[in-house]
Nucleic acid binder design. Structure first.
Length: 578
RNA sequence: CGGGGCGUGGCUCAGCUGGUAGAGCGCUCGCUUCGGGUGCGAGAGAUCGUGGGUUCAAAUCCCACCGCCCCGACCA
């Protein structure tokens, strides 16, 4: 490809609203442009990368027996009503009406459509297992899109769905996909880590996320250096702390202290000069509509997924202010566990407290501080057993610095990652609501067991840049680079230079590489800056300086210095690179 | 949805206490230069987000709306 007529509008400066490194570089290198919040145009250079990633994904999924399909992006309401997700999905689901006022949504994912397709045309165990996948545009009306294509509203996702006659078969297939995913990201040249994940609202019971390790990642990962356990901190189980013995002789009496206007643990801790670890953080939730009280240590963060699991409920939301008032008789910042069950004052739309559940760590908090259930007041000298007794204990907190691996009790290490893929075992969640059944060899009808597997293709592109760049621009891993070679001709007015460059251009092609030839009539500095910005893995410079010795210059983007290559040896040098 | 900020050529931004628009980059043309965003000159390009109000006069002040961004809540 010749650059002089290639649609590649590079920018010296990034747009002001570009909020992280990869977006800035994608804008500057002319890969993308923004049309609206969270909605991007992909220019030729960007699209080439997207296609490279897509092809790697396609090859690896085909290799394990996946079959590519193409599913509608506009999907009818009726299907989504069948699974109940028309309601559950909330505002993230973009809904539209056609001219007849029929309702549709823009696909955020495709379980409904694919399961519908399979239930219609697959009816025998002989047709199973089967895995169908597609590369499809997805739209999720994110509350706050950010980080460019990393968290866009419209994005390209590969979604795959497998259907099985048994749980065991699904399990086996899950392993195949897991292996394919490892090969995909390895081939893309990315540093990544598969971690245990929470399955979230998609449902199911087992899930992994594939994380590209990068400091700017949105997800936090807990890693055990000893046994290799790795999990999203949203999911990571933590070992129960060694229990400290209670010594009632050292218990202080309950004492109320005035803490006017101080709502947060941070504020009160600072005010009372007490370590946050001594605090009992009190939170109310509505679990399937009933109020529950959850307690975590002041320096810990409550993990709603863990709480949901511990309570065995499906619906969980933060309780509104009136629940705090009814149960604790005070605003949210001043609620506490002491004598809580006797404080209920029935009000409109409120129910009494159903249960009190506490994180394990509270077993070790003595002479603690909590809200006093009175406005502008906290209580000190709060002791478990004497002053309050949770109905149950569970692992409720987000894994944090100091927490230990549940397997080997070694402290976790923490890293950040960008989630580029996720695998789920769905079980029969969707086959049940959509009645996707098959007949076994004894004519018995059963629900298919499903797995589903996603890769954020556009996000993977951004993640690669996030991981591989320097102060000058992108440094593409060769496998996903938009072109492999950058060919720069210095003296474009000179016929000999151009003739030699054309020859080099053709030889690079002949060796099986793609090449972007910068033959613009620009100053060398401009071309080098653009070449560094675009970040193609290999660069050849043809100039009068080296041409007189029958040589050109070769440099890898990631390396500092260039070497000289005899033009006569070019074909063999190129062959060595392959 | 709460809090904050911003909308001025393609990009980055200036324009104070009102007098109907500027710079740099980019683009076009000419000369110059030619191994790390040359230098000089000449141009093209903006109903100052939209609507309303105040005023003799609004990019500037006021109101509403729209859009965008940041922090938080939310999140395959």
């Amino acid at each position: 490809m010749k650059l002089s007529n290639y649609f590649l509008p590079t920018l010296r400066e990034a747009p002001q609203d570009a909020d992280n490194i990869s977006v800035k570089l994608m804008f500057r290198s002319g890969m993308i442009r923004k049309l609206a919040s969270g909605i991007y145009e992909w220019l030729p250079l960007g699209l080439r990368v997207l296609r490279k990633v897509e092809n790697i994904v396609r090859e690896e999924l085909d290799a394990i027996g996946g079959q590519e399909v193409w599913l509608p992006v506009i999907q009818p309401k009726e299907l989504w009503m069948e699974t109940g997700r028309w309601q559950i999905y909330g505002k993230e689901l973009l809904r539209i009406k056609d001219r007849k006022d029929s309702e549709f949504c823009f696909a955020p994912t495709a379980e409904e459509v694919i399961t519908n397709m399979v239930r219609r045309d697959v009816s025998s165990y002989r047709q199973l297992p089967i895995m169908l996948y597609q590369f499809g545009l997805k739209f999720r009306d994110e509350i706050r899109p950010r980080f460019g294509v990393m968290r866009a509203r419209e994005f390209l996702m590969k979604d795959a769905y497998s259907f099985h006659a048994s749980e065991q078969d699904c399990e086996k297939w899950y392993g195949l996909v897991y292996g394919a995913y490892e090969r995909i990201f390895r081939r893309c040249g990315l540093g990544f880590k598969p971690v245990e994940a929470d399955s979230g609202p998609i449902g199911g019971n087992h899930s992994h996320e594939f994380m590209v390790i990068a400091n700017t990642g949105e997800a936090e990962i807990a890693l055990c250096p000893a046994c290799g356990y790795a999990a999203n901190t949203e999911k990571a189980a933590v070992a129960e702390m060694p229990e400290r013995k209670a010594d009632p002789s050292k218990f202080h009496p309950l004492t109320d202290v005035a803490t006017p206007g101080l709502y947060t643990v941070d504020e009160v801790a600072k005010f009372l000069k007490v370590n946050k670890k001594q605090f009992i953080k009190t939170l109310f939730f509505l679990a399937d509509g009933e109020p529950v009280m959850a307690l975590v240590r002041g320096d810990h963060e409550l993990n709603e997924n863990k709480l949901r699991r511990a309570l065995g409920v499906t619906g969980l939301e933060k309780a509104p202010q009136n629940i705090y008032e009814a149960i604790a008789g005070c605003p949210a910042g001043f609620a506490g566990p002491v004598d809580i069950k006797n404080k209920y004052v029935p009000g409109k739309d409120t129910k009494p407290l159903k249960t009190v559940i506490a994180d394990y760590a509270l077993k070790g908090v003595f002479n603690g501080v909590s809200g006093a259930c009175r406005n502008d007041t906290h209580t000190t000298g709060v002791n478990i057993g004497r002053d309050y007794n949770p109905d149950s204990f569970a692992d409720l907190r987000v894994a944090a610095e100091g927490d230990m691996c549940p397997n080997c009790r070694k402290p976790f290490e923490f890293k950040r990652g960008i989630e580029v893929g996720q695998t789920f075992k769905l079980g029969t969640k969707y086959s049940k609501s959509l009645k996707c059944e098959f007949l076994d060899e004894r004519q018995k009808s059963s629900l298919m067991v499903m797995g589903c597997y996603g890769i954020g293709v556009s996000r993977t592109v951004a993640a690669a840049i996030e991981q591989f760049h320097d102060e000058w621009g992108i440094i593409w891993p060769p496998a996903i680079a938009p072109f492999e070679f950058s060919l720069v001709t210095i003296e474009t007015e000179d016929t000999d230079s151009m003739a030699q460059s054309l020859k080099v251009y053709e030889q690079i092609h002949a060796a099986g590489f793609s090449v972007l030839w910068d033959e613009r009539n620009e100053r060398p500095g401009v071309k080098f800056k653009d070449a560094d910005l675009i970040g193609l893995p290999y660069r050849i410079v043809v100039s009068a300086k080296t041409l007189k010795d029958g040589e050109c210059e070769f440099k890898k983007r990631a390396e500092k210095t260039a070497v000289r290559w005899k033009l006569s040896e070019l074909p063999s040098k190129l062959a060595e690179l392959k």
